[in-house]
Design a protein around this nucleic acid. Structure first.
Lengths: 209, 209
DNA sequence: ATTACTAAAGATCGAGTAT
DNA sequence: TATACTCGATCTTTAGTAA
């Protein structure tokens, strides 16, 4: 959680260079006692969010990345529709196996309102898409619960309402995925390749909301 | 102050339409007790940050503007550019060797949009610059992948969009550098010494973004 | 089934003060 | 001068349970 002390440090450039400031001055700026700033800086340091060295404070890499995560959440929320592009990739056949499990099919019907075609469309994102995918994962997911069947475990799926070329569908992200970060799997009520008349390597746009 | 409850509501679109959710479910999502969510929602309502109506919650205008204020702080902080100063140093000739490899040239063209001049400009940073270089290394790098060629290994390069005296370029940091911490290497589409009419020992400013 | 009150535990705070 | 410890007051939280 990003608190007002980290925010204060950020505003003073502590993500770029160490900031020289006393606990007394910080307390004054934030309307807190010197003692409380002292205590809270110690806590932040223990959590590896800030680094203190002879009179100066800097945000650590971890601290900065927490703040960036918060930034991404806010940005995503305000430009509600995320749009990524990529090309159709050859699937691993894994999606088909998963999606044909009746329990997944039922869960998707429940959460998305359609019965999934037994196979996923895999899309290889471009560089910008990979970045947007990272943002997508910070959105509140629709969780499709996993289960066990015949001794095999099917993990939870994180899923998101989406559209590929304006055809309504869902992006599903297995909790323990076998894909790299540049591939996303799309589930739809029909065979998307046929419906869209697309083949491997063709460019497509995916919108998330 | 924007708290985790407001953030949760935002992620669920409560700035666009009321969200139907129970205090129990929210507690589960946020790892808090139902009672605490209940209490905190009441407080937020008293502060006019949220509006509750028969089982649903929405962010108020005031709540939304507080969140937007936070967003603006974060964006401004990260938009601000890192600026270092130093003097032009004599190169080690190593940059030229690296950058003349077609594969590096191609990768840089891809990531930065220019074909690199076959040689780097080496800049010896001043004390403050050395500190800022440390900060630069904590920014998200643009990674230029390494490779092997004729039995020799060329490691990954961490690179950053930059400008020397307002000429667009890239700072590259070999993963296994032979330079000390006070030298940075700059790659540009042209011979920067000539373009800038600078010689060894002349002062220059580098901006990173 | 959902929300919110009460009470007690736990966390956070400022004042005083030692290092 | 600056930082951080102790301690009592205040706040925040959870569990139990009433509305």
């Amino acid at each position: 959680m990003v608190d007002e002390i980290m925010l204060f440090l950020l505003r003073n450039g502590a993500h770029m260079a160490p900031v020289s400031i006393t606990t007394t001055d910080m307390g004054e700026a934030l309307g807190m006692s010197q003692q409380n700033i002292s205590r809270r800086l110690m806590l932040l340091e223990k959590k590896d969010m800030v680094l203190r060295r002879k009179g100066s404070v800097a945000l650590t890499e971890k601290g900065i990345s927490e703040i960036k995560e918060l930034l991404a959440i806010l940005q995503n929320s305000f430009d509600s529709k995320l749009r990524m592009t990529g090309v159709i990739a050859d699937g691993l056949g894994e999606g088909r196996f998963y999606l044909s499990r009746p329990r997944y099919g039922k869960a998707i019907k429940e959460k998305f309102g359609f019965k999934p075609f037994p196979g996923t469309l895999n899309i290889r994102l471009d560089a910008e898409g990979v970045e947007l995918r990272r943002r997508m994962l910070q959105l509140e997911p629709i969780i499709v619960d996993g289960f066990s069947e015949n001794g095999r475990t099917f993990g939870d799926l994180f899923s998101y309402k989406a559209a590929v070329e304006d055809v309504e569908c869902a992006v599903v992200v297995p909790t323990r995925t076998h894909h790299g970060k540049e591939i996303i799997e799309v589930v739809a009520p029909m065979n998307l390749r046929k419906t869209l008349r697309k083949k491997t390597g063709d460019k497509v746009a995916i919108r998330i909301w």
